[in-house]
């Protein structure tokens, strides 16, 4: 019962972070700040959901597979964010430093 409640808290928290990340993608003005929002979705959201699912599954083969996915995400998502930001930097996009209203491009 407690495990059930805990896993639901984790799942809902993950879902909430996903929605926040989605809003952030539209909210933020330039590539780098948007990436911050996307990074939240990539890492914490996915991991909370995986943890919640692992608690739901109990101790079984499924949990082991979820743990493998967890490790995989732990390595790949930050790397993907890094590669994306790096590519944007090399492509000549500069971070937007002043506070301006709206506008996609710095």
């Amino acid at each position: 019962m407690i495990i059930d409640i805990l896993s639901w808290i984790l799942l809902l928290g993950g879902g909430l972070l996903g929605i926040i990340g989605g809003i952030g993608m539209h909210w933020f003005p330039d590539v780098y700040s948007r990436q911050h929002a996307a990074g939240t979705t990539d890492t914490l959201c996915a991991m909370l959901i995986l943890l919640g699912l692992a608690l739901q599954a109990g101790f079984s083969l499924v949990t082991f597979k979820l743990a493998l996915i967890f490790i995989f995400l732990l390595f790949t998502n930050p790397t993907a964010s890094h590669a994306l930001a790096n590519a944007a930097m090399q492509g000549g996009l500069r971070p937007q430093l002043e506070r301006t209203a709206g506008g996609d491009n710095p």
Binding site: F72, F75, T76, T79, H82, A83, N86, Q90
Partner: peptide
């Protein structure tokens, strides 16, 4: 021509066998 960063190369080396 793209010289990729160290992070990318290390993580790729780790991931490809997996």
């Amino acid at each position: 021509k793209n010289e990729h960063s160290l992070i990318l190369r290390v993580v790729a080396k780790f991931l490809i066998p997996l």
